[in-house]
Every structure is written in C-alpha cells, then in structure tokens.
Design a protein around this nucleic acid. Sequence first.
DNA 1: ATCATATGCTAAT
DNA 2: TTAGCCTATGATA
Length: 289
Amino acid sequence: MPEGHTIHALAARLNRTLGGERLAVSSPQGRFAADAALLDGRPLDQATARGKHLFIDFEDLILHVHLGLIGSFHVKHAVQYDSPGTPARLRLEGRSHVAELRGPMICALVDEEDRQSVLAKLGPDPLHRPDQDTGALRSWDRIARSRKAIADLLLDQSVVAGVGNVYRCEVLFRHRIDPFTPGKELGRVLWERVWNDLVILLPLGMAFSQILTMQDQVDAAAEMVADGSSLSITEALTGERLGDHFERRFHTYKRTGQPCDRCGRIVREQLIGGRTLYWCPGCQRRRRR
DNA sequence: ATCATATGCTAAT
DNA sequence: TTAGCCTATGATA
C-alpha cells in the first residue's frame, strides 16, 4: 500500500481525526514503550508527509514514521474496539479516533536536525505544492547526469520522492518509455511530461486512496474531483474514501504473461535494483529524442 | 500448516 | 548483489 499518496492521505487523516488533541499514546507491542510514554498526554500539533516519510509533531517532540514495504497505520473510530491480529507498535488514542501502527520500517523520536537531514536527502515530491512547479527541473538535473536506467532512477527517492514500484511501472508505460533508457538519453521534454503526469496522478491516488493509472479511470476520477459531485471535500483532502473504489486495473503492474491492453504483446517482468519491473516490450521501446 | 510474495530501504558482503 | 527487517495475505500442501 505505501507509496507517497498513501502517506500524504494518512497525514491529512491524522490531522483531521486527532489533530490538536492530547492523546493517550502507548505501545501495545512493547517495542516503542519508553518513547510512547514520552508522548503520552501530549497534543498532536501537526502531521506532515514528504515522499514516503511521515513526521508527527507533538509540541517539541517529533515522531518519524516510515511504513517500509509492509507497514500499516490504520485510523478508525474509537468505538470500534476490534484491533486486528498482532498488537500495534504504536497506538494513538484520541476522543473520537484511534490510530494503530504496525510493522513500520521506522518509528522513532527525532529532533529538528534529524528531520532536516531526512528532508535534505529527498528529491522533489509531486504531492508537495512548492515542488510541483520546480520539481521537473530539479529532478531533471539528476536524471540528465545519470547513466542509470530511468526505471532505476524513478525509485531513487533522492531523484523523485514518493514514487514506488506501481507508479514507476505504470508511468513509464503511460509515456511509452523503455525502462532501460539511461537517464541522460531520456530527453528533458519527455521527462517534463512524466513529471507533470506524476503531479496529476499522485494527488488523484491520494484523493481516492488508490493508485489510478488507466486513462478512463484517471479521467473519471479527475472529473469527480473537479465538480465535487461524488467526492466530498474531506475525501478529496484526506483520501478518506470508505466503500466504493475503482476496479483494480493496471497496464503492466503484476500482469506478467498477459497481453498488453494496447498492443497485445506479452507483458514481461525483470528484477531491477531488487524490485520487480513490469513492462510491455511492444509499447515501451527505446526512442530517439 | 507452511510458503511465497508484497506498493521499501539499509547495511553488510 | 544479497541478507535482513517488519507483518499481512493469498496460494499451496
């Protein structure tokens, strides 16, 4: 679940459901018990997301969370006592809602200096407003200098922050880019198209709590956001969309062996940088810029 | 019951 | 490049 859109939706939801309240903080699982005690009874001032990192400010204390591959951070109504399976690493309880963190890669108290050093290592985030206009150029700076494959660079959080394996595979397909194209051979104009697409796709993913990359779904979702017809303000801002979702459909992600929906060639997979890349060898060919 | 896999990332080799 | 970490889930036995 966790690419950038998930973390941004989570930050917004934490602010909406627990923001400003003094919380009962605990570590049912025990591994975070000492730090949880320090947070207990403090007000949650602000939750902030950048890329896949989440920072929660409790007055002068900062909680740094990264979900990694399998982490989850569920926010639910306090009346629903049913805690699933294993005890949570961290539990935040407010008047109306409870948030439970499980399996995070990072859950630690940090200071402002630590936070800044994390942020300094991140590339532009398509979900961070100030980055949206300048991000194409900043990331291009890195890409244009690299001989690494663009598929590799897209997962490098210091190049672009927040993109994970699904968005990388799908956005490369959407622009018919050969994943193995070296960064320096991609071309600035093509990269700008990719960046601008990410600036549209990630916020939609955040609003709908779902990665949407099929154009018909992207169009439908964008229209819902634009006219606000079936999407409440809250949903648009926090990704708090219970119930109906779009059908789960992708161009290449996890479609190995199936025919490409555009050209019919068989979708392939290959490990690159320890992650499974999915792509269509027909649509995604090397091209001259 | 057991195994493989997962929308991440780091440290060790 | 690989091992390791953290947990949930779906496939396989």
